[in-house]
């Protein structure tokens, strides 16, 4: 199989395991490419990609832009803060305007869940969801799983805990779907106020005690506390959050076995993990960043291929 089963990448929910494995295999090749002296391939020459970021992003945007450039695509980028884009017609109109300039693919980040699905009903171009509210962030989940695969050879059977604000996290949701499709066991860990009430219905274990969670897992994905997505206070202070859910070297050393530490970035150093953990040999945080480019190249390449057919 050399083709994805989907036209857009709106969420991991829509992918099957073969799709994910195909993306991984393709990313393996692109990872070789980006480690060569000449890091560029002509695969997407003549393809124009618009990066529409209706919500702040630094690393995802850079990662996509780099992936696009490495594939020789033509790119344009648009950024707007969430507050100035709150009307539906603005979204459709903005996108239609950009499409009128003959754009083939759209990479979109948006503060509202389902924004990518909504857009896919209105326009013809290929859409890649770069994060929609608390819904999905599929390329992040793919690069996370890819990084686990790289470290352990396989994702199946691995025990992965996702720690932090599960309620507002698209990374958590996409990770749960992705890891489960690949046969991993998933646990979520965080404060009771930041845990969706029905999360266990997704087939994940739920744990509120960080020490227990870390002793259970092989991989811990420490999410960033997304203060910007919390309209009300779910815990009294970052200090107290850190007391309950912060991972420091002492805690890491006290575990019954070495574990791998991941973080989707950007890190609030000293809140969810301390610097000595982030920079330790257990951390694969920077590998995730590198793999992010390869994964996004793979996704762009495979979806663009579908466009030709």
């Amino acid at each position: 199989m050399s083709q994805l089963s989907v036209k857009h990448l709106l969420g991991i929910k829509d992918l099957n395991e073969q799709d994910i494995q195909l993306i991984f295999k393709t990313a393996d090749n692109f990872k070789d490419v980006i480690n060569r002296p000449i890091k560029k391939v002509p695969s997407l020459r003549d393809i124009t990609i618009a990066n529409l970021f209706f919500e702040n992003s630094t690393r995802t945007k850079l990662s996509f832009e780099l992936a696009e450039k490495r594939l020789s695509a033509d790119t344009i980028s648009f950024s707007a803060s969430g507050s100035s884009i709150s009307k539906g017609e603005t979204l459709i109109d903005t996108v239609n305007n950009i499409l009128a300039m003959k754009v083939d693919m759209i990479v979109m980040r948006h503060p509202n869940p389902g924004a990518g699905v909504f857009l896919s009903k209105h326009i013809n171009s290929i859409i890649i969801n770069a994060g929609d509210g608390a819904h999905e962030h599929p390329t992040q989940a793919l690069l996370d799983a890819f990084s686990i695969r790289e470290k352990y050879g396989d994702v199946a059977g691995k025990k992965v805990v996702i720690v932090g604000d599960i309620l507002h996290s698209r990374v958590a949701l996409s990770n749960i779907f992705c890891l489960q499709k690949l046969g991993a066991e998933v646990m979520v860990c965080g404060p009771t106020t930041l845990m969706p009430r029905y999360i266990s219905s997704l087939g994940v274990k739920v744990e509120h005690d960080l020490v227990k969670a870390l002793n259970w897992c092989e991989v811990a994905n420490m999410l960033r506390i997304q203060l910007e997505r919390q309209d009300i206070k779910y815990f009294p202070s970052l200090r107290e959050y850190s007391m309950l859910y912060g991972l420091d070297k002492k805690l890491l050393d006290s575990l019954n076995k070495p574990i791998t530490i991941m973080h989707p970035g950007p890190i609030n150093r000293g809140v969810e993990i301390t610097s000595d953990v982030a920079d330790s040999e257990h951390s694969i945080i920077l590998n995730q960043v590198e793999n992010g480019v390869a994964i996004r190249m793979a996704v762009l390449y495979l979806l663009a291929g579908r466009a030709d057919k």
Binding site: P113, G114, G133, L173, D231
Partner: peptide, 21 residues
């Protein structure tokens, strides 16, 4: 209800939409 949009339940969890319990 806060700023909820849909029933708080399995669907809201899967869709990342704010739930109205």
């Amino acid at each position: 209800a806060a700023d909820g949009k849909v029933n708080e339940g399995i669907t809201s969890t899967k869709l990342g939409l704010k739930g109205i319990p």
